[in-house]
Design a protein around this nucleic acid. Structure first.
Lengths: 223, 223
DNA sequence: GTCTATAAGCCGATAGAC
DNA sequence: GTCTATCGGCTTATAGAC
């Protein structure tokens, strides 16, 4: 949809395919052994290259993680920041967020679980993504607090609840294998489970689902 | 309580204190930077030692992680294996397990979150603990299936549910800061949340809580 | 128990040919 | 674009003095 960034995309088809293969394999290896536990040699071998050839496509090992982090965090952060200012019940908006994030992670061409492990984000070089992750967490906590105010959610500690949600989102995707990850219905499965744990009135779940899905559909069109 | 293992404990008080300090600092560093991201130099410095002095107390860097993994997995695994064969509703037994595990992790003198990151358990040297973790996961899945049979739990995919529970257990503890980690009520907080998400009848939660806590008290006495 | 000195290996990244 | 050759730095672990 965007017309910009030409100089990079222009370079041949083969280079772009290799670059993509590097990202995919890096994601798998980071998930299996962590960022620090993965050597650039391992990545190169998995991508069918010699180790130094990586550095034609990426300036550094960190640059690879950077691109994966961007894919992992940019859209969910934007989506959550919009949800905070949307009208409607907070429960439905939280439902929309969880569905969106789970689908985003599960349908990703890259395995994004590894880059959220280690203390990767505590390294100075990844400060940018640490801040993005913190902002996303804040949006989720805001949604939860809004649910306390409008009475749709149980008055549980927003920080603890946000940590639980993040833990679920990452761990449901992890190690579940491609077939199950892609299985449709996972986003609703996860959102249902979490909302049952948070709703002040369990019987309101069906209406929350309807309102949440409608909101999701609406926000996704003009993303 | 045990009378065995003398030769190790007998060596002076100072050595034992240093050994303990190494474990505590290792846990913190593994949590912050991951196992592979933490150098033995960092651990030694944090413990007030020179790097080679570590190897008087531990045969290798892995031996440190080994001890933390033993602390993290041994008791929960044993506890879960007993719960599987206990009588009573599966929901109550799952409640007991979640309370136990959360309290175990939260009251630990060591930060145990780091050793469950990276692909630490995928390394051949940690095969023993990989198997222990897999066994623990199987016990949890069995509990969930038992809940399908006795009708106390919703018929949700046991593998997905087990992944969600594991994700919550690890992430609620992580990065929450000591004061909140030790705050009493956390085990019940987590168990309540998960059970609300899984119970086939939301109104049965109070009785599940009572039965679960009773079971927890019972099994803890003759541990 | 803790130290200094040091070995042996792996790491990320660069230089330059093709 | 990908290769070979290679560098400097950092890593875990050992040897041996105190």
């Amino acid at each position: 949809m965007t017309v910009v960034q030409k100089s990079k995309v222009t370079r041949g088809q083969k280079g772009e395919q290799t670059r993509e293969r590097i990202l995919v394999k890096s994601g798998e290896l980071f998930a299996a052994k962590g960022f620090f536990g993965t050597a650039t040699r391992d990545i190169a071998t998995a991508a069918g290259l010699q180790q130094p050839s990586l550095f034609f496509h990426f300036a550094s090992k960190q640059a690879i993680a950077d691109e994966l982090l961007a894919y992992s965090l940019s859209r969910p952060k934007t989506f959550a920041s919009r949800l905070v200012e949307e009208p409607g019940s907070a429960a439905a908006r939280l439902y929309a967020y969880i569905s969106f994030d789970t689908e985003h992670l599960a349908s990703s061409p890259y395995d994004l679980t590894g880059i959220h492990q280690d203390g990767l984000l505590s390294m100075p070089d990844f400060r940018k993504w640490k801040l993005a992750g913190d902002a996303l967490a804040q949006h989720i906590r805001t949604l939860i607090r809004q649910g306390h105010v409008d009475g749709s959610l149980l008055p549980l500690d927003p920080i603890l609840v946000q940590h639980m949600i993040s833990g679920i989102n990452l761990n449901t995707i992890r190690r579940v294998g491609d077939k199950q990850r892609r299985k449709s219905g996972l986003p609703e499965f996860v959102a249902d489970f979490i909302l049952r744990g948070l709703l002040s009135s369990p019987r309101s779940l069906p209406s929350v689902q309807i309102e949440g899905r409608e909101l999701l559909r609406l926000l996704k069109t003009d993303e």
